[in-house]
Design a protein around this nucleic acid. Structure first.
Lengths: 212, 212
DNA sequence: ATGGTATTTGACCAATCGGTCAAAAGAAGG
DNA sequence: CCTTCTTTTGACCGATTGGTCAAATACCAT
């Protein structure tokens, strides 16, 4: 009994091997998403996450080596899907359709995954201490590329003149607002679901902004 | 020495009476704004704030009774000034000018007081646990009133048809984005100041959206 | 200088933080 | 049934948390 590391340790970067592991890791990530998105990284506690997941704290740490590891895995898994809609924009498509489709997809993400959006918002608002390098490389390149396509569309006279990068910022700001500031939107509008009216509003907005 | 409360205790709701108190309370609030806006309420610690303010923790607690009290005073002082630009909108003015002026003022606030914006963003993203009642009453009324004015402008055919409340949301989202997501904007754009181009972009956007 | 007030601090506290560990309890195959 | 591996847990650790308190110090009018 000299070795202290379990032979079949699956925590950390390893992939789950049993059904129990898969189930519990998912429960933990779901609980962690809830807690991290509501309190930010430093404001969240392992006890909260464990409690939300219905596990004991040591048991939670049996599946993940640390608080940072959970947060990191959550953020990592988020980033890919979060920017997919932007990558999905087709430079050879009809400009207005492509942009409106992107807006729609982004608003759907805000509606269907508000906690993911708030997790990301927390990270950014607090200075992006964990994903700044990603922002300065991958994200920056992706935005530069997309801005290039938009600039070409403008040069070809297919949409109105507009700063391409700020256009992208505007799409992010307008769509994520409904997830990140949900309580404010709800407090002002009442408990009704704001997403239908928001979708109409945003389509109108971008149609007018981009009409030639 | 029976009484434990100092006769001249000025902490809590009392107003500062000496120059030292005024100075130190201001230093504390400035430090607290920095820390709270970066880490959120739960993620911020009194030691951090005290350190940032150049005071010892007990000394900090000589001027404010608790962590909550500091955060509360900060938020309270913020709310008034934060919505002033909206209150300053003149229902009898020229619609487009009024709205564009509001956008400009709001963007200036984001540029000049980004930490205040992020303090507010943190509070809202995390569910507004401390100011939800305010949102549901004062803010809601204010938005309802302003939406009424905008609706009238639309009825009079002075600006294009648009959902007034979502128009207000759009202004908030677009302007605050540059403060709340500053690191992302900077990471994508480079270190250059984005506010000049943002101002132009937003003016163009709202002109097109509201043109009759 | 002196006395009273305002301010500052070191030492301390209970509670909670992230994390560890050895042992107990399940699960599975033979 | 027994063995082996996986999963769970209670007890515990040092560090940090928000906050207290009595004593020390700075300030100021007389």
């Amino acid at each position: 009994m000299a070795g202290r590391a379990a032979k079949s340790q699956t925590s950390g970067t390893g992939k789950p091997r049993t059904r129990i592991q898969k189930r519990n890791r998912e429960m933990i990530l779901r609980a962690a998403l809830q807690v991290f998105s509501q309190h930010g990284f430093r404001g969240a506690t392992l006890d909260q996450i464990a409690n939300e997941a219905g596990l004991s704290k040591p048991n939670l740490l049996y599946y993940f080596p640390s608080k940072d590891a959970i947060h990191h895995e959550l953020l990592q898994g988020l980033l890919d899907t979060w920017l997919d809609p932007l990558r999905a924009m087709n430079p050879d498509g009809e400009p207005l359709d492509e942009i409106l489709a992107y807006v729609r997809r982004k608003l759907e993400l805000a509606r269907d995954f508000p906690r993911e959006s708030r997790l990301f918002a927390n990270e950014i608002v607090q200075g992006a201490p964990r994903i700044l390098p990603y922002l300065e490389t991958d994200l920056r390149t992706l935005v530069a590329d997309t801005s290039g396509h938009i600039a070409r569309w403008i040069d070809e006279g297919r949409i109105a003149q507009v700063d391409p990068t700020h256009l992208i910022f505007s799409i992010w700001a307008l769509t994520q607002h409904y997830a990140d500031f949900e309580v404010q939107v709800t407090a002002v509008l009442g408990k009704d679901d704001p997403y239908e009216t928001a979708a109409t509003h945003l389509e109108t907005l971008f149609r007018r902004m981009l009409a030639v």
